[in-house]
Simulated scan of single mutants.
Amino acid sequence: MEWIGLASTALGALVGLAATFVLDRERWRRESDQRRRDDRRAVYTSFLAATAEASEILINIARGHDADASASSRAQTVIRDSRVLTRRLELSLIAEQAVMEQANRLVDRLRDYRHVVGQGLAGDMEAVDQARMAYNDQRDQLVEVMRKTL
């Protein structure tokens, strides 16, 4: 009869070890998923901030707030100077394909916006506003896709 007590103790220990292993594995998976979401959120935010900075510079140039001799050249280099392309490369390392497609479209809309402002069309605010609205619409679409991945 002594072996029954020993067997039940061993079985209890095995069940306890298995339960601990399963719970630890689940906790590790949740923490790992949270770290990935946090990393993704940080890169998303960095990319969106860079594009927002570029957009702000462009609207200030278009509205004449930054109207000096170098305004046109700043408009032409705004994407580089705001590090939009660098941030897009970072994004490409962690983002899903749907996010990258929308991000690439956003950069295209930002380039269109830059082109309109760089042409010196500040007097034609309708063209500038259309380019800015196209950029804003694309940014909103990107944000929606990004939210779905977080």
Rank of each mutant, 00 (worst) to 15 (best):
R74I: 10
V84Y: 07
S73A: 12
L85C: 03
A71Q: 02
D66C: 03
V78D: 05
Q76S: 09
S82C: 10
N60L: 09
A67M: 08
D66L: 15
A95E: 03
R63V: 03
V78H: 06
T86R: 07
A75H: 05
A75Y: 06
S92Q: 06
V84W: 07
A71M: 07
V84A: 03
I61K: 01
V78M: 03
I59L: 08
A71N: 03
A71C: 04
T86L: 12
R88T: 10
L89D: 09
T86S: 04
H65G: 00
L85H: 02
D81A: 01
L89P: 08
T77V: 13
S92K: 05
T86K: 03
V84S: 05
L93G: 06
R74V: 12
Q76N: 08
A95P: 15
S70A: 14
Q76V: 02
D81T: 14
L89K: 00
V78A: 05
H65E: 02
T77P: 00
A71T: 09
R88E: 09
R74W: 11
A71I: 13
R74Q: 04
H65Q: 11
R88P: 12
A67I: 15
S72Y: 03
I79K: 00
R63E: 00
L89H: 02
A71E: 01
R80H: 11
I94R: 02
G64I: 14
A71K: 05
D66H: 07
L91S: 01
R74F: 06
V78K: 02
V84K: 00
A75T: 05
I94F: 09
L91H: 03
I61E: 00
L91N: 01
D66Y: 13
R83C: 03
A95D: 04
R83M: 13
H65I: 15
S82P: 01
D68K: 12
S92M: 06
H65A: 09
E90W: 06
V78I: 11
Q76T: 07
A75S: 11
R88F: 11
R83Q: 14
R83W: 05
A67N: 10
L93E: 01
R74H: 09
A75M: 07
A62C: 02
S82M: 06
A67V: 14
L91T: 03
R80E: 15
T86N: 04
D68M: 09
S82Y: 09
G64P: 10
D68T: 14
L91F: 04
L89T: 15
R88C: 02
S73M: 13
T86I: 14
A95K: 04
V78P: 01
R88D: 02
S73P: 01
A75L: 08
N60D: 09
A67D: 12
A95S: 07
S70C: 06
A62M: 03
S92G: 07
D68S: 10
S72G: 05
A75D: 05
D66S: 12
R83A: 12
D81G: 03
S73E: 12
S82E: 12
S73H: 12
R63W: 00
I59F: 09
S73V: 14
D81V: 09
T77Y: 08
S92L: 01
T77G: 04
R87E: 14
T86D: 12
H65R: 15
I94T: 15
I79C: 02
A67P: 10
V78N: 04
